[in-house]
């Protein structure tokens, strides 16, 4: 499993505490929603970054009030066909104005990377022999887009009617 961010494979700075009984006392840590809700006060006190992982049946509404204190939101794809997290990412980037890391985890595959990136994901946990190569393949597919999304790319409509 490789973690891809900004076109580089990086070491995950977050310790994965999801599903564990105890949360490490220090260091960047990733917790699940149950842990966040039951240890919210302590987690908000931490000086080091905290991430929250949401299952595909946990809309980001549940953490909306705390987003400014959350450095990473990991959205899970239990199976690549479950597309709920695309909407969660859009909501986070759009309506909630979230600017931290949104990481795709779970069943993350080459053929879905481009849609993930368009909807606002900026980090990807990818099971692949060549994660960077996969990302390059996925990014090279399209040079024109029909609709605005969370990636700031101009849509065909916008390009057609650009001033000047």
């Amino acid at each position: 499993m490789a973690l891809l961010k900004n076109n580089a494979v990086i070491d995950d700075p977050f310790a994965d505490a999801t599903g564990r009984e105890t949360i490490p006392a220090s260091g960047p840590v990733l917790v699940d929603l149950d842990q966040w809700q039951s240890h919210r006060e302590q987690l908000l006190q931490r000086t080091e970054p905290v991430g929250v992982k949401l299952r595909s049946d946990q809309p980001p509404e549940s953490i909306a009030e705390d987003l400014h204190s959350i450095a990473l939101i990991a959205l899970e794809f239990p199976v690549f066909r479950d597309g709920r997290a695309y909407s969660y990412a859009r909501l986070l980037r759009g309506q909630y104005g979230y600017s931290g890391e949104i990481r795709a985890v779970g069943d993350v595959l080459l053929e879905q990377l481009h849609f993930m990136e368009r909807t606002g994901f900026d980090a990807f946990e990818l099971e692949s022999d060549d994660p960077l190569g996969d990302m390059q393949v996925a990014s090279a597919d399209f040079g024109v887009w029909y609709q605005p999304a969370a990636d700031g790319r101009l849509s065909a409509v916008q390009l057609r009617h650009r001033a000047g």
Partner: peptide
């Protein structure tokens, strides 16, 4: 048609 084609959010409904 254009809005829905390859819509990144709604391709795995």
């Amino acid at each position: 048609r254009q809005y829905t084609i390859l819509n990144p959010e709604f391709s795995y409904l």
